[in-house]
């Protein structure tokens, strides 16, 4: 090579600088493009919720029109009604809000119900599903595959079809069995926490079990054996050692279970009256009212109900993706 060392270094340095600049520029462009795409997608999916929120802070005449009045002085009257349980007839800036379209708009009790039922049923269904999933993963027995198909098929029953049988079961059990045990008029299942929880647990069990099974499939069986060599029974091996390795999977399954429970409507409606109504059941009361739907109240109710799950989603979505990447859907 006839190039002097000095010149070579300079050229190399200049090249490197140029390359670095180009790379930085490319990097910047990539960041901008990729971020923009992600943001646009997110905003498209998020925008109906934003629009819906706007409905709750505007007088109805501004929203039930095209083109809508996007910017107006916000009124938070509906939030006072749904969050603070204030009487809809008072406190409205626009005068008296007409109370004709009836309904109890106070959303907090159902929100609490939804969260409590969601959390408890998730805990129960995951703790029931985990050992079952472990067994399905570790034991080879004759009807194993049939059992798996059966578990999956239970999720396919349209809820409509189970409505009356469930109602019948709950009321009959309460009146004939539990009343005899715990005294007249006891409601152990119908319109009770236990009854709703059981429904939500059952709705979640099939999906959770199958999801978790694939996580256990991923954990080497040598782990079990190691524990058992050391004197653990299989049960102990599972409770002391193995399930820790399935924790990310359990987290993912739990998140999905919570979401399913949060969304469940028809069966909850069937087995509850007033004590344990969840947000969807509460929301359905806005379906029809003779004097026109109270869209403002409904929008306020739904945005209020979205706040806790939004926080929940913000916290868990990383875990969800991470949990799902291990196990269930390995490439």
């Amino acid at each position: 090579m006839a190039v002097t060392p000095l010149a070579a270094t300079e050229v190399a340095r200049a090249d490197a600088a140029r390359a670095a600049r180009a790379m930085r520029a490319r990097h910047r462009r990539e960041v901008i493009v990729q971020t923009t795409v992600a943001a646009i997608i997110a905003l498209i999916f998020f925008s109906p919720i934003v629009y819906w929120f706007l409905v709750s802070v505007k007088p109805l005449p501004y929203t039930m029109t095209w083109p809508p009045v996007i910017f107006s002085e916000p009124i938070f009257d509906w939030y006072q009604v749904v969050i603070l349980g204030m009487d809809p007839t008072i406190g409205a800036k626009t005068g008296v809000i007409y109370s004709g379209a009836a309904g109890d708009y106070y959303v907090i009790p159902s929100l609490v119900n939804s969260v409590v039922i969601g959390v408890l049923s998730t805990i129960i269904s995951i703790s029931l599903a985990t050992p079952s999933a472990y067994a399905l993963s570790r034991f080879q027995f004759r009807i194993r595959n049939n059992l798996i198909t059966w578990i999956l098929s239970t999720r396919m029953m349209p809820p409509v079809v189970a409505m009356f049988p469930l109602f019948w079961l709950y009321t009959q059990a309460d009146q004939r069995l539990f009343s005899a045990i715990f005294g007249k008029g006891t409601s152990v299942l119908y319109d009770s926490l236990l009854g709703v929880l059981l429904v939500h647990v059952v709705v979640n069990l099939p999906l959770s079990t199958l999801l978790l099974k694939s996580f256990f499939d991923d954990i080497p069986t040598d782990l079990d054996e190691a524990a058992m060599v050391d004197g653990c029974t299989r049960w102990q091996a599972f409770t002391k050692v193995i399930w820790h390795y399935a924790l990310p999977g359990m987290a993912a399954a739990a998140i999905l279970a919570f979401i399913t429970s949060w969304n469940e409507f028809l069966l909850t409606l069937t087995v509850t009256r007033t004590q344990f109504r969840t947000v969807p059941v509460f929301g359905s009361t806005f379906d029809v009212s003779a004097a026109g739907t109270e869209w403002g109240a409904l929008a306020a109710v739904s945005t209020t109900a979205m706040v806790p799950v939004f926080i929940f989603v913000l916290i868990v979505q990383r875990n969800l993706v991470r949990g799902l990447t291990m196990g269930a859907i390995k490439g």
Partner: peptide, 16 residues
Amino acid sequence: SWGEFFPGFDDPSRSK
């Protein structure tokens, strides 16, 4: 239609 609508017509917070 339903006379039940009527009270709402005179409510400025929802009616035009």
